[in-house]
Design a binder for these strands. Structure first.
Lengths: 334, 334
DNA sequence: AACTTTTATGTAAGCCCTTACATCACTGTA
DNA sequence: TACAGTGATGTAAGGGCTTACATAAAAGTT
């Protein structure tokens, strides 16, 4: 049961364990002949260094913690997949924690995952923007120990690095486009009060203001990010009149589509719909959804680049903003 | 930087490290007073046992490896989420590896993840059913070291435990239903030669045979599991005539829907469509998709239960089959 | 009172690495 | 020839935990 260890290899290769270790870590110079011999013996005996002992010695196990509210969300799933794949390319493993959206659950997730002595923490998805300091102070505490990378979240602090989609601009542009098309009652569908949702809302509002249009309270609706949930929610608002929809998530946009169909309203004829995230949902619905490409992969790539630079000792910027694209499909054919 | 360790706690609590360790592990009896004191000191000093040292000592870190071809697939994402959440409930962390579908990549994934001295391995998604032994022999090798749990895959062997959806029955039933509705040209859309895909195909074929109907080669089409890919593939088959579709994944079923729309064929009027997995796609499309609920959560629950029993020293069954439901929505309104 | 048990705790050996420092054999230089 | 410098390797000290075994104190037994 006890696998081969460094002593076995050392003995078989007729060298000291230090030399074996050096070969394994490719650290200081080892004579080519010796190296070759050691490698051969390692190979022959299927030697794999014990990660625990290694971790103990190095106080690092080349592991990063991934905290994600919900991997079954297509956008986040893609992010997790991308991060995992590429971090592995750098020799890092990922420990995953699906935290749920609750801020307290997230705190616990972080706490637990931290016990694994990870080298860095990646937080996927937006944080609450409530501004309540207690909610985010633990992140700052964590950042005291290891670098924290946020994908689409934003918290200011030492050793916290945020990569965000420019949600403000994206929604601003989308809203403007609807306004140009003559829409005057644009329903804003949102499901949270996260930092990112707030940016989107601000984009929506500013676009109105800058075009001299009023921002109507009644056109801001909170609902859950689910297709049927959103549909039903809208169905309940009998007196709500709108000529277009901007949703902060594709699921809600598709919900709006379902609502329109249920009510016999034509899309894009009578109302236009814009979603967010360019998830799979946006091409499975009918008509296919105009949506914002929130550049998940680009964000993750940027975060990984930053992380590697940082772990390599370089200094990196704390906030990186990535511009989004609006992908026009058929729910906004004017 | 060097955090508090067991020696610090021992000194502060005026006991030996063995006692601290006993308290931490709740192992053999410790005097209540002493225990309380130690716990208090631990609390006060934010002591967390070093996982590496712990791993070294116990040769286990309470971690399970999750290998998943593609977390951005909704079905698997849900499985990963469920597994992660519930394993954590038992104190186990999950290391994730998104392997891709290639069998060689999977082998590498398993090899790498194994170096982390995980306590168990979970393989999500079906294995190739080619029957080529080399492809699966490494799994048997792994199983020599730690238990292997397969979700929807099937390999026979010591220490390999498989939990599967009864894909054969599910497709058999769905096919039969279409046959009863008078369909005689049922297109079978598949994307792989996995064990699971083979079961589905067998269900499709047997249903035909048992009802005295021929199994037509031309009605078995391989395509990729993507909406537009499938649509385009079908669009290319100008001479293919069919009155219904059974797809082995929802994405392909939705692709068939897109195809029908592109060709001006009405669903369910002219053709019926049945998908598989009850993913989010199946409710976002239009009309909403009749699909097989492949019981992802139930499968995972069963796997976790088995795992815990096994790690607890019990004996468990090696193969568990779970019955599926057909969820009727509107692509099969006859 | 002289013992056996039981309960609580401590000691120290291991688990398998990394790495600072020591050593030794050369090469090159003065 | 003596010595500094270089390269290759070894020695041994951690790193923080678990746990078998030893010990000591308390309780029970005769």
């Amino acid at each position: 049961m006890r696998g081969v260890n460094i002593y076995d290899i050392a003995k078989l290769a007729d060298v000291s364990i230090a030399t074996v270790s050096r070969v394994v870590n490719d650290s200081s110079k080892v004579n080519d002949k010796t190296k070759e011999k050691v490698l051969r013996v390692m190979e022959e005996n299927h030697y794999t260094p014990n990660v625990f002992a290694r971790g103990l010695g190095l106080n690092s196990m080349k592991t990063v913690g991934l905290v994600c509210p919900d991997v079954s969300d297509n956008y986040m799933a893609k992010a997790v997949a991308y991060l995992e794949k590429n971090l592995r390319g750098y020799g890092y493993d990922c420990i995953l924690y699906c935290s749920g959206y609750d801020e307290e659950d997230k705190r616990q997730a972080v706490e637990l995952i931290l016990q694994k002595r990870i080298d860095a923490l990646v937080l996927i998805g937006s944080n609450y923007a409530g501004g309540r300091d207690e909610e985010t102070s633990y992140i700052n505490e964590v950042a005291g120990q290891i670098p924290v990378f946020m994908i689409n979240g934003y918290i200011e602090g030492e050793n916290i690095y945020c990569t965000l989609a420019d949600d403000y601009q994206a929604v601003y542009d989308a809203t403007e486009e609807l306004i140009f098309a003559g829409k005057r009652r644009i329903l804003f569908l949102s499901n949270s009060e996260s930092f990112s949702a707030m940016q989107k809302r601000k984009g929506y509002e500013d676009a109105h203001k800058n075009h001299g249009l009023p921002v109507l309270e009644e056109l801001r609706l909170y609902t859950e990010n689910s297709i049927h949930g959103t549909r039903d929610r809208l169905l309940l608002c009998r007196n709500l009149v709108f000529d277009s929809v901007i949703a902060t998530e594709d699921g809600m946009a598709v919900g709006a589509l379902k609502y329109a169909r249920a009510r016999g309203i034509s899309v894009p004829g009578e109302i236009s719909v814009v979603g967010y995230n360019n998830s799979e949902l946006s091409i499975s619905c009918e008509p296919e959804l105009t949506t914002v490409d929130a550049r998940g992969e680009i964000l993750c790539k940027s975060a990984i680049d930053s992380m590697m630079s940082l772990l390599g000792g370089e200094k990196i910027r704390q906030k990186t903003m990535i511009k989004c694209h609006l992908i026009k499909r058929h729910t906004t054919d004017f």
